[in-house]
């Protein structure tokens, strides 16, 4: 089964894209104003740049998405293009990706994107993201689960192709119309 840019657009329609929630930008701006104006989270290594976020999440997607899916890279990139705005949520993604890459370098000698699939899977489990409950304000494991693993799983399984993969072409969160519930199984 192939993920398409339409799926990514659908995931963004379900979860929101840049500009959809001006509030997020305000909160991020507030956070920025509250901090030291000289601070640059990318420069000091506490947040990843967007290219690193894309590379990392694409690499993680190859582990947490089913193996029979095609088009994963383009799906993730399109989704993140809408998702990585100036909101506090996007800041959380950038910061958590930086933290995950720091652990990858420490434990496996390379960032996530440069690890082979088995090591990526091992890293996520060593971090504890498999057993953790997601929490945006929690431990590293809980934040990796929230901002990395579940960010990707939410995008996939709220999209038509992701839903169809498990038997529902109009999954919760996707505005797939008020007809599919009336139809019998294909």
């Amino acid at each position: 089964m192939e993920l398409t840019r339409r799926d990514a657009a659908a995931a963004l329609a379900a979860l929101g894209a840049s500009g959809g929630v001006a509030l997020g930008a305000r909160v991020a701006a507030d956070r920025s104003r509250d901090g030291d104006p000289g601070e640059d989270p990318e420069a000091d290594g506490t947040a990843s740049d967007d290219e690193t976020v894309r590379e990392t999440l694409t690499a993680v997607a190859s582990v947490v998405y089913p193996s029979d899916l095609a088009g994963v890279d383009a799906f993730v990139e399109t989704f993140l293009a809408g998702r990585l705005d100036d909101s506090a949520h996007a800041a959380g993604v950038r910061e958590t990706v930086a933290e995950l890459n720091h652990l990858a370098n420490s434990w496996h000698g390379a960032p996530v994107a440069d690890l082979d699939a088995a090591d990526r899977d091992r890293l996520l489990r060593e971090v504890g993201a498999d057993a953790a409950d997601e929490d945006p304000d929690g431990t590293t494991a809980e934040r990796v689960r929230y901002y990395v693993v579940n960010e990707l799983l939410l995008a996939l399984y709220a999209s038509p192709t992701g839903g169809e993969l498990v038997g529902i072409e109009n999954p919760q969160g996707h505005p797939g119309g008020a007809e599919s519930y009336q139809r019998g199984p294909p």
Partner: peptide, 23 residues
């Protein structure tokens, strides 16, 4: 399925298979 996907301790093919069997 989408809610269920976010709560398990699995991902990849095992998660897909679990969602298929649950839903």
């Amino acid at each position: 399925p989408v809610e269920s996907a976010l709560s398990g301790d699995d991902w990849g093919d095992p998660l897909r298979d679990r969602l298929r069997s649950e839903y």
